[in-house]
Amino acid sequence: MELVTSFLAAAIVAGTPLLFATLGEIITERAGNLNLGVEGMMLMGAVIGFQMGLVTGSPIMALLAAMLAGALGASIFAVLTISLRANQVVSGLALTIFGTGFSGFVGKELVGQVAPDSIKMFFKPFSLPGLGNIPFLGKVFFNQDLFVYLGYLTAVILGIYLYKTRKGLNLRAVGENPGAADAASININLYKYVHVLLGGALCGLGGAYLSLVYVPAWQENITAGRGWIAVALVIFATWNPYKALFGSYLFGGLDIIGFRIQGTDIQVSQYFIDMLPYLVTIIVLVMVSLRKSKRNAPPRGLGVPYFREER
């Protein structure tokens, strides 16, 4: 039992960077923009957040810097795809290449550096008063660090925003049918810009969790493909922030299962276990595409540039 709770608690920690990135991509895609630059934006957030943390020692400054860096990456994508109507797939790939280069460039001097103690202390796990003492669930969900709690909160806020507010309804309209939304005098480009940038900021946060809390040190290519898994998780979660919680923690579990198995009698090569998250991503995608339904469909305007003059 002790083993199970500690595994689940660790799965949530490992799933938190995925959660932020997935939530970021969900609101980006809800605005009708498919941004494949998640990996790049995570890396930009990871390196800038880490750098800022090293310089200032302030966790708040580090997080703000990471969000800014992610949003900056997203802004390049936004200008290209929203204003200049460039191909979204290729623009996103370009952003990933750029972000990888950017983090390698800035992070060259940071390799091997460890996050400062002030930040490690700030993100130390603590028991949420009241909730932390619930048997089992308390141990798994409510004895975590502040960043993890921020993840729960962000998912819930986004869920309420999307499904319970006027602005969220507008956003969904923009993603589904920009022409109709435009006719209803919703400012399409404003909605797209705001949510693409916000999505980038969340991806930046996901990256910062890796460099500041999860590892917590700088290493090259720290994301190791998590950005791409997040893109797949968006489909898995059917563009729903609540389901993103479940998906992210599930994949967090896959991410750490290798370490856990090494301590037991099960004889599997570590390289095969390392394949698991990628393999399961493929299986999940195939399964999602097998049971197609209207409810689980992507926003209808996804990937299509909107140009009022050509409506």
């Binding site: 750029f98 990888t100 280069g101 950017f102 460039f105």
Partner: peptide, 13 residues
Amino acid sequence: EAAALILEGMILF
């Protein structure tokens, strides 16, 4: 070396 990647990304942008 990552500078080359930045340049590649820039050209593509």
